[in-house]
């Protein structure tokens, strides 16, 4: 009885959670898909999200992976706990607040913005600003997930092979990387979802170039809900399949052990 109740409850929760994506896919018929594609500004938003997102994700992985590894190997545990608590700040900072701070910090009136301007880079309303905003929204999630992935690998795996004469590099390729891969994949998937969905920070820092979430908001204001929904279906299409596929792959790797 309680088992049936449990299954029923789980099914209900899953249905509620999957409902929005389902509605979006059902509502978006071929006509709306192509009508969006026909508008240059909408196509532009799609490419902006894909282009800036690809760069932002690469940067997040490039910066986040080594940092997560160093954090996972830090001792004593007290240092790790402190840094973990500190990382909750960027993680929990409302994206809109983050956008305001970034807009101020990268603006021409601060030394950083001034320096950027001298280099010929505009800190706000630019690809640079958009990518920075997307990175800020994704990096804490990537870092914490990758950190957990590395932490779950006991240093003993590496140590026991190092003492048998294997180099640090060889051990990280043969031991650390394959063992961390499922966790890192999940972290990258989460980062991609955060990047493509980034709205709060980009709307302040980079209204132009307009990425998908901001474009959806503009469409809602200008043309109403149906157009915004159709655009949202496109965002779902580019934002979700990669994380879902990566997650599925990561799980499969786990099970095939």
């Amino acid at each position: 009885m309680s088992r049936r109740l449990g299954i029923g409850l789980t099914g209900l929760v899953l249905a509620i959670l999957l409902l929005p994506a389902g509605i979006l896919i059902i509502e978006a018929h071929p006509a709306t898909w192509s009508s969006i594609w026909a508008q240059p500004s909408m196509r532009q938003a799609l490419w902006t999200t894909l282009g800036s997102g690809a760069i932002a994700l690469s940067m997040v992985i490039l910066v986040g992976t080594p940092t997560a590894w160093v954090l996972a190997r830090l001792s004593p545990a007290k240092v790790q706990n402190t840094i973990g608590a500190l990382l909750a700040v960027p993680l929990l900072l409302p994206p809109l607040v983050l956008g305001l701070v970034l807009a101020f910090f990268l603006g021409i009136q601060t030394p950083v913005g001034h320096w950027l301007a001298q280099m010929g880079i505009s800190g706000t309303n630019s690809w640079f600003g958009l990518i920075v905003a997307e990175m800020y929204e994704a990096l804490p999630y990537y870092l914490l997930t990758a950190w957990a992935a590395f932490s779950s690998i006991s240093p003993a795996y590496e140590e026991e092979l190092r003492v048998l004469g294997k180099s640090r590099w060889a051990v990280s390729r043969y031991v650390t990387w394959p063992m961390a891969r499922p966790g890192l994949t999940a972290a990258a998937a989460m980062a991609w979802a955060r990047i493509t969905g980034a709205f709060g920070a980009p709307i302040v820092v980079a209204y132009h170039p307009t990425a998908m979430p901001v474009a959806i908001w503009i469409a809602l204001e200008a043309y109403g809900l149906p157009t915004a929904l159709a655009l949202a279906a496109w965002l779902l299409l580019i934002g979700l399949p990669i994380p879902v596929w990566l997650n599925w792959r990561a799980q499969r790797v786990h099970l095939s052990r």
Binding site: A156, E159, E160, M179
Partner: peptide, 15 residues
């Protein structure tokens, strides 16, 4: 380069 060591609770690679 000359010493090999077996830990008391060894960790074989699961993969």
């Amino acid at each position: 380069s000359a010493v090999a060591y077996l830990a008391q609770t060894p960790h074989l690679l699961p993969h």
